[in-house]
Computed example of a mutant assay.
Amino acid sequence: MAHTPVNHPARPIYRAIGGLVGLYFVVFGVLGIIASAGDDVLAQDGTKVLGQGTNLGFSLLTIVLGAAILAGTVIGRNLDVAINQWLAYALIVLGLAELAFIRTDANIFNFSIITVIVVLVLALVLLMVGMYGKVGSEEEKEAWQKARLVL
């Protein structure tokens, strides 16, 4: 992407923020599995973890998402940028879909409004991290600077 900065000076901070988001998803998922142990996978009961509605299915999903984010953060080499951006888009779609179905039987992940807000905020944080974490050669950085200055 031509508009994505290359070798941003704060990229280590953005990478750490992405790792923290992944760690939050893993911790939330583990706590969710503990809280919803013995329930159905897609139970729509009052199970809450950290103030957010969840069930066993969403807890497992957050562990997988968090592990993918953490793996991308550890590996780096712009793999973290791709993972963060694509998962951010997927989380935005998930959050908006669950918002649309929050008071229906289609609320398969037992979302509450707080869960929707947290998922959407974390998705936007991941998108920001993905946009500013790109690493490249000095030639790519110079080409990006020249393209940016043309505007």
Rank of each mutant, 00 (worst) to 15 (best):
A82L: 10
I92R: 02
I75L: 15
I113M: 10
F58P: 00
I102G: 06
L126K: 02
G57F: 01
I75C: 12
L124N: 09
N84H: 15
G66M: 00
T104C: 03
L79C: 12
G130H: 01
G51I: 04
A35T: 12
I92V: 12
L65K: 00
L70H: 01
G72D: 06
N107K: 03
F111D: 03
S112H: 07
R103W: 14
L122K: 00
L50V: 05
L42E: 07
A37V: 13
V119N: 13
A71M: 13
L120I: 07
I113L: 14
R103C: 06
N107S: 05
W86D: 07
I113Y: 14
G130R: 02
A68F: 09
L56D: 08
A67C: 12
V41R: 14
F109E: 00
I63H: 04
G32T: 01
I83H: 03
G32P: 00
V64C: 07
M131I: 10
G38A: 08
L70T: 01
Q44K: 15
A90C: 05
I102Y: 07
N78E: 14
D105M: 06
T62S: 14
I117G: 11
A43R: 05
L94Y: 12
I83S: 01
Y132N: 02
M131R: 13
N84I: 05
Q44E: 10
L124Q: 08
L99D: 10
L61E: 00
A97G: 15
A68P: 03
L124Y: 07
N110F: 02
Y89M: 09
S36A: 15
L127N: 06
M128V: 14
A68T: 02
I34L: 13
G51K: 08
T104G: 08
A71E: 10
Q44A: 13
G57C: 09
L122C: 13
V93I: 15
L56P: 04
I33L: 15
G57N: 03
L99P: 06
F101G: 13
I117S: 13
W86L: 11
S59D: 03
I117D: 08
Y132K: 03
G32W: 01
V118W: 06
E98W: 09
I63G: 01
V41T: 12
L65Q: 02
D105V: 06
G95M: 11
E98Y: 13
N107D: 07
K48S: 13
L94R: 05
D80G: 12
V121Q: 07
V119K: 03
I108A: 11
T115K: 02
I33R: 06
S59L: 04
L124E: 08
L96E: 06
Q52C: 09
A106H: 15
N110Q: 10
L56K: 11
